[in-house]
Structures are given as C-alpha cells and as structure tokens.
Simulated scan of single mutants.
Amino acid sequence: MKATLQESQSLVLIVDDEPFIRMILRHFLQREGYQIVEAQNGIEALIIFKQLQPDIVLLDAIMPDMDGFECCTELQTLDCGKHTPVLMITGLDDQESVDSAFEVGAIDYVTKPIHWPVLRQRVKRLIQQSQLQQKLEAINLELQRLVTIDGLTEVANRRGFEEYFAQEWQRMKREQSPISLIICDVDFFKLYNDTYGHRIGDRCLQEIAKAIKDIVKRPGDLVARYGGEEFAVILPNTDTLGATYIAENICDAVRKLAIPHRNSQVSPYVTLSAGFTTEIPQQSSDLEEMIAAADLALYQAKAAGRDRFVQNILATQK
C-alpha cells in the first residue's frame, strides 16, 4: 500500500556518510511517496535540520567526525527537534549500541543490512505518531488557553490572572524588578444593569475590556476580568511612574467611550475607578498582600468620589 497524501508530504532527512546507502534509501523512500533530503555527516545534518525541519531523521550510527549518537544528542537540544523522531540505522546490534541509541533520544532503530518491509512500517508509524502527538499538544494548548480566557470579554479570567500573577511575581522577585498591579471597577454598574438590562451591560463590559486592552499593549502585560465588573492589569517591569501613566490612560479611555449612564451619580457616562500599587518583591513579600493593597487603593478611589485612580503608596517600594 502506498503512503497516504499526508505521509507523502512528509520530509525525510537521510544522514549517512556512504553515498551508496543514501542512494538506496532515497530510491526506496521516494517510491513510498516521501520527499527526501540528504546529509553526509552529522554537522551537515544539523544545518539542514534547522533549515528544513524534516518530519523524521534516518541517522547512521557510525560516521566520521560526529557520529550518529552525538548528532542525535544535538538534535534533542533544538526546539524545532522536540517532536521529530530519529530512527537510528546501525550495523551494530549489540546491547550497548542499542542502549546508546535510545539513551541519546532515538525513537527506534534498524540494523544493516536493512530489512526493507520493516523500515517501511517503522518510518510510517513514527511519522504518524509524531503528527498525532503534535495535534494532541496543540489541542491541549488550546484547551488550556480557553480555561484561562473570559468568554464574554475575551481577556484573561480570574484563573488566568492568578496563574500569570504568581508566575510574574516570582520572576520579578528573582530579577529584583518592579511589578505593578491595577484593579479597576466600573462605577455604579449594578445601576447600569438595572437601567439598561444585562444584555446591554454585557456589551458595556466588552467595550471597556477592549478599551483597556488598547491601552495595555506590551506582550508581557496582562488584562484580566477579575470579577463581575472588575478588571485587573498586571504590569511586569513597571515602576510607579509607568503604572500611573497606564491607570490614568485607562480611566480616560473609558470616559472617551461616552457610554450613556443616566443613573450614574458621578457622570452622565460610564466611568471607572482604579487602584494600583507597585512593588519589588522580596523574599518576605506576599503577593496576596499586594493584591490587597491594590484593592484598598480601589476602595479609596471610590470613597474619594469615583471616576479616578489612587495609588497605595504604603505598599510601594522604590
């Protein structure tokens, strides 16, 4: 049976220092429908691998300069090589050689002289397994992303916030760099929902989330829906001055949306209150205390009349 369409598009890298072996392998695999690229030694194989990222590597164990075992070890260190199966081809079938092949990362091996039906089935199986593994990992990554995204606003949800904040807190602790946290709350949002209905309320939250994302643009920053009408912004490597600038722009951006709110007690439009704090995490620091400090600053912003931001100076480390 010939290879399927998906298999026929697979690229096989043949690595062998003997031209005759490369030729018969090439002719055999081409008849099976595979695309072929060749390397005559381990060093050349690494260069070609990085450029073309083949679907499988057929690697001769015994070669001058860099043998197959060393080449396989090097392939495992490449990010693009973590999913690529290596099939070792060896004239040695002693226990030590077989063990060495698996120790350096080979998925399977065949011995010389090559048994062609065995090689056909092993190449086919290894490519299929690799493709399936990559699909499963992609699905798992997408599922992981979905469980950390808020379905309504398409920013991170509370779980995504907690995971990312813990990660960046530890990183800033190691680097001794500042991290800022802003917590925002839509002013009089319950009254907004009561006045306009929950469907319009949901649309309001979507517009506000987008406005915040348009302000917070750095790849390392995170916008999250922290609660019902609360949003949080994590700003790694950001000092007090930078956090002040972001908090001010967020509040201003929501004002500029000019979303009518006839029952607001501070403005004819929807507004936002925000509190923030900045810290350089220490060994004795607690990230929960930083969240509490930002939350306290938010409470102070509300108490001061809303539609503003307040910094919790007590928690700030310069």
Rank of each mutant, 00 (worst) to 15 (best):
F189W: 08
K210F: 01
L25G: 03
R159G: 11
T277D: 06
Q311M: 13
I250F: 02
P236R: 10
R203E: 14
V98C: 08
R218W: 11
Y164V: 11
F309M: 13
Y299L: 11
Q9S: 15
Y164I: 09
K135M: 12
V223P: 10
D202N: 14
D17I: 14
C72K: 04
T148Q: 15
G220N: 14
Q40R: 12
D94M: 06
F276I: 13
I200N: 08
G33H: 03
K124F: 15
I280A: 11
Y192Q: 01
T148G: 00
H83R: 04
D55S: 12
V233N: 08
E96M: 15
V98E: 08
G33Q: 02
L241S: 11
A211P: 00
G160H: 09
L152P: 01
D17R: 10
A45S: 05
L152I: 00
P236H: 07
E70R: 12
A224I: 12
R174V: 11
T195K: 11
E288T: 11
Q300K: 15
G305V: 14
L296H: 10
D93E: 12
D65G: 01
I14T: 07
D60N: 09
Q134P: 00
S130P: 02
V12D: 09
D93A: 11
M63F: 02
R203H: 10
K217V: 12
Q283K: 08
A253I: 01
S284H: 14
Q170G: 02
E163H: 05
Q51E: 10
M23Q: 14
T271L: 01
A224D: 07
Q317S: 08
R22C: 15
R225C: 00
I14Q: 05
E229D: 05
L298W: 09
G305S: 06
K213T: 14
I246A: 14
L136A: 00
G151E: 10
A232R: 03
Y109E: 04
A101W: 05
G81Q: 07
E289R: 09
P19E: 14
D60P: 01
V186M: 04
D93M: 07
P64T: 02
N140L: 03
Q40Y: 10
I43N: 00
G105T: 09
R171T: 13
T73D: 08
V266T: 13
L58Q: 04
G227L: 10
D55T: 06
P64V: 01
K82C: 06
V37A: 11
K50Y: 10
V233E: 10
G91Y: 12
N140W: 00
V186Y: 01
S264M: 00
I89A: 03
P281H: 01
L191C: 05
D286K: 08
E168I: 09
R308K: 14
E137F: 00
E279V: 15
L141V: 10
I62V: 14
Q35M: 10
Q128L: 15
A258K: 15
L59S: 03
F276Q: 07
E175Y: 08
V216D: 02
T195R: 13
G42E: 06
R31S: 12
E207V: 05
H198S: 09
E70M: 14
R158Y: 15
C184H: 05
S180E: 10
T316Q: 13
I107N: 05
